[in-house]
Simulated scan of single mutants.
Amino acid sequence: MKIRPLEKRDLPYIYQQENSRKVMALWFQEAYTSFDELQLLYERHVLDQTERRFVVEDKDQFIGVVELMYIDGLHRHTEIQVIIHPDHQGHGYAQSAIKAGIEYAFKVLNMHKVYLYVDVDNAAAIHIYKKVGFTQEGVLRGHFFAEGKYHDSMMMGILAHEFIAN
Rank of each mutant, 00 (worst) to 15 (best):
K113M: 04
L6P: 04
K2S: 13
I98D: 05
R44Y: 11
G73I: 04
I63F: 05
I63M: 10
E7V: 12
M24C: 05
F106G: 04
A125M: 07
T135V: 12
A160W: 09
S20N: 00
K131S: 06
F28K: 03
Q95H: 12
G90Q: 05
K149A: 07
F28I: 01
M156P: 03
V114I: 07
Q49G: 09
K99F: 07
V118D: 09
E43L: 12
I128L: 06
I164R: 04
Y115T: 07
D60Q: 13
T78K: 01
D10Y: 06
E51P: 02
P12I: 03
L47E: 15
E37Y: 02
H91L: 05
I14A: 07
A100N: 14
N110W: 05
V56S: 05
S20T: 00
V132K: 05
E162A: 13
E37W: 02
E43A: 15
F62T: 03
Q61W: 09
E30A: 00
Y129K: 04
L26V: 07
D119Y: 02
K130V: 02
F62M: 08
F62Q: 06
A125P: 07
R21F: 11
H77I: 00
R4G: 08
K99E: 13
Y104W: 13
V56M: 03
Y115L: 11
V23L: 04
M69Y: 09
D119A: 10
D58M: 07
F106E: 00
G133F: 04
E30T: 04
R4V: 08
H112C: 09
D119K: 06
L38S: 03
D48C: 14
K2I: 13
F163A: 07
F144H: 13
D121M: 12
Y115V: 08
R52N: 11
P12V: 03
I128R: 09
Q61A: 14
K2H: 10
A146L: 01
K149H: 13
L109V: 09
E30M: 05
P12F: 03
H85N: 06
D87K: 11
L41K: 15
L11P: 08
V139D: 03
D87S: 08
M155Q: 14
E137D: 15
H112K: 13
H151M: 01
H127Q: 15
Q61H: 12
D36F: 10
A100V: 11
A25K: 03
Q29L: 12
R53A: 08
L41M: 14
G157A: 14
L38D: 05
L6C: 07
Q81V: 11
H127D: 15
L40M: 14
D60K: 11
V108M: 11
H85W: 02
E7L: 14
G73Q: 11
E103V: 12
M24R: 06
I3C: 03
G73R: 14
G92N: 00
K149P: 02
E37F: 00
H143L: 02
E57V: 13
H161I: 13
N166A: 11
E18I: 02
M156Q: 05
P5K: 10
G138V: 09
I14K: 09
R52D: 06
V114P: 00
Q39N: 14
S20K: 00
L47H: 15
K113S: 09
D72M: 04
L11Y: 09
E67T: 14
